[in-house]
Amino acid sequence: MSNKESTMADLTKEELLGMYRQMHRIRAFEMAVYDGVQRGVIAGGPHLYVGEEAVAVGVCTTLRPMDYITSTHRGHGHLIAKGGQLKPMMAEILGKATGYCKGKGGSMHIADLNLGILGANGIVGGGLPTAVGAALSSKLKQGGWVVASFFGDGAANTGSFHESLNLAAAWKLPVIFVCENNTFAMFTPMEWTTAIKDLSARAAAYGMVGTTVDGNDVLAVYRAAVEARERALAGEGPTLLECKTYRFLGHYVGDPEDYRKPGEVEMHKKNDPLPRFEKVLIEAGMINKELMQQMMAETRQEAKEALEFALSSPDPDPSELTMDVRRPFKPLGDLERVSYIVEEGVG
């Protein structure tokens, strides 16, 4: 792995600038959440994605609206990259009625099936089996969608990881297993818990392709995801795509961060995915300082407005507490032939 940037692949200027804006949007959103915690308006110690933006944007740029993702406790970046809107996201993080989940899910459970987001997840490794099921649906229905399952280096040591990768490989399912190796499983450095350096090496054990890329190089992530996606759609099965990155902030906001080596954060900040992508775009003559400043200001404004929207939104009514636990019984048109081919929508 080197810090040498990838080529532009097949992306148009518009797409490249869209990716750049999306990375800024994620960073601005996360910093607004951070501020919200400092101001005491956000509880629950949210897990922020700052420093890892290139992974979500690189992967999700390859996905269409019909494709699905499963996400993690550190999911805001994935959700924004898959089309999540900042206002209902921020409202959910503040537990408001206008949030994606009416304030019942919070930061770790934001979902929107219409956007193909099968949910963030509070359980490390919890989303991988769901991704396998959604990919199984794609195969059974010949639905043509792929599923990108995001998880971290911590999840790679769970039983769910093993079962899911084996199932997806055995059945040649269209899954991209995106391992965001940010070097820490919560508060423990990976080298304390794992004897290998590249988690993608595990792919060989399941009979799938494994690749490790520089996860702070958005174009490298994009290019690897394109290949994974093509394999998935060609019926050649899943890919384990390891993206090496680094978590600039703590496991959660408020984490004392005693587990880091001195100077570690400063060293990694020199490898910040945003300036790296800027450099590429400037050298290609696609962006100048002025446009950069403008995009940064615009995304910060969006994040600020999202926080204002959330703050001015109402709490859910107490009567909501017992709603949505189970779906009420609805009578069916009995015995008529039901076909999933004609079924509309999802879920």
Partner: peptide, 25 residues
Amino acid sequence: ERIIDTPISEAGLAGACIGAALTGM
């Protein structure tokens, strides 16, 4: 395709049911 034998993966098969159910099966 419709009578699917799994490996001995009880978590994986329960999760596969969840993902399939969420996406229309």
